[in-house]
């Protein structure tokens, strides 16, 4: 796996409220019920906007995930991050992971996204419910998102 160490993950910036809320929502549930919440996230993964629907070239495959999932990060003029992700209906777990990150990172600044701890996926209390192996796919997804943000803010 080629996860680069997260730049600036030495927490001078607190975990954004959106991500903290998602984490707390999961932790408040019993382990089995956490799967149901993950399924809700999975169902909420938004369709790609029209302008990106026919642009597979822009999307990066998250190789570490067990099912095909593709992500694309946009950083707008205000340095706000927008994450677009697509994964098939036959891969609800992977869709759920992408949806958590899409919702949790929505509207954050590039700086905030880069400060998200690399092990955030391990803090959701899902490791026991879906297995550590599957969680690694989500960690890899976050790593790739941060790498895209770095690339797109470097210019």
């Amino acid at each position: 796996m080629t996860l680069s160490p997260g730049a600036g993950s030495t927490v001078s910036i607190p975990l954004p409220d959106s991500l903290a809320e998602i984490r707390d929502d999961f932790l408040a549930l019993e382990i089995r019920t956490r799967l149901e919440l993950l399924l809700e996230f999975s169902n909420e993964l938004p369709e790609l906007p029209d302008r990106y629907r026919d642009h597979p070239d822009l999307f990066e495959r998250v190789e570490e995930c067990q099912s095909p999932v593709f992500i694309f990060v946009e950083v707008d003029d205000e340095a706000t991050v927008h994450l677009f992700a697509t994964a098939p209906r036959e891969a609800p777990t992977t869709r759920g992971f992408a949806s958590i990150l899409a919702q949790g990172l929505a509207g954050l600044s590039a700086e905030q996204v880069l400060a998200v701890p690399d092990d955030y996926p391990s803090d959701l209390g899902l490791t026991e419910a879906v297995s550590p192996l599957r969680i690694r796919g989500m960690t890899a997804m976050l790593g790739r998102i941060k790498r895209q943000v770095r690339e797109k803010t470097a210019a």
């Binding site: 399924l39 209906r89 036959e90 609800p92 419910a129 879906v130």
Partner: peptide
């Protein structure tokens, strides 16, 4: 199934 959520869908 490999995907732990597939049954629920």
């Amino acid at each position: 199934s490999e995907d732990v959520l597939l049954y629920e869908t």
